[in-house]
């Protein structure tokens, strides 16, 4: 559909584009992280592109991802590519749609911010930071948007425990057993059963 955009991107920013693909009618360009701001600026300002509408910004956690049709030996060839940051853009003048993707390693979760180009990405990048812990460089006000300041960790990462709660307040007259963490309770139970078995 918007193959022209991918062709123009490859022609003008050949060194910045890692690869391109089309999937389900969506054109995807994988951009090098340090070149993202330049590519996005060109997409917005070039009259032949004129991407004026930011659609969404999010991230994908590829932890333990098993792609179909790829041999398991190749799954973790490069462990640095844990996160993908996606920017979906739309040009209302030319009716183009394109998705920019940036791979972000786990040990260095930084990504250039596009909030200076499209202000609507401001809160979306804050949400992505809130849920995945991607640090957007150049963002005007990068702090949590949904969760509270006291929250530790990033809940939409695949390694965040599903049952983990971080309460702000609790009743002080609840039974003590419910305040004991589950792991300690199982340890106590295991210890009791062990005592019973010994004669």
């Amino acid at each position: 559909m918007s193959q022209k955009v991918l062709d123009a991107l490859k022609a003008s920013h050949a060194s910045a584009i890692e690869r391109t693909e089309s999937e389900h009618g969506d054109e995807i360009a994988w951009v090098k992280r340090d070149q993202l701001l330049a590519v996005a600026t060109w997409l917005r300002d070039d009259p032949a592109m004129a991407f004026d509408s930011p659609v969404f910004c999010t991230a994908i956690d590829r932890l333990d991802w098993r792609p179909l049709g790829v041999p398991p030996s190749q799954h973790f060839k490069d462990e640095n590519l844990r996160f993908e940051v996606c920017y979906q853009l739309r040009s209302s003048r030319h009716r183009y749609r394109v998705r920019l993707k940036v791979t972000v390693p786990e040990h260095d979760p930084r990504c250039p911010s596009l909030a200076s180009l499209w202000p609507a990405f401001d809160w979306q990048e804050r949400e992505t930071f809130d849920m995945y812990g991607i640090r957007f460089e150049g963002h005007p006000d990068l702090r949590r948007i949904f969760l509270y300041e006291e929250f530790v960790g990033y809940p939409l990462r695949k390694d965040y425990p599903k049952e983990k709660r971080q309460p702000l307040v609790r009743r002080d007259d609840l039974p003590i057993a419910s305040k004991t963490p589950t792991s300690e309770r199982t340890e106590i139970a295991a210890g009791d059963s062990g005592d019973e078995e010994t004669p």
Partner: peptide
């Protein structure tokens, strides 16, 4: 909602 954001019952906070 058994996840990070939902309180498991309002009786965690008030009777």
């Amino acid at each position: 909602y058994q996840n990070y954001h939902a309180m498991p019952g309002a009786d965690q906070v008030i009777p």
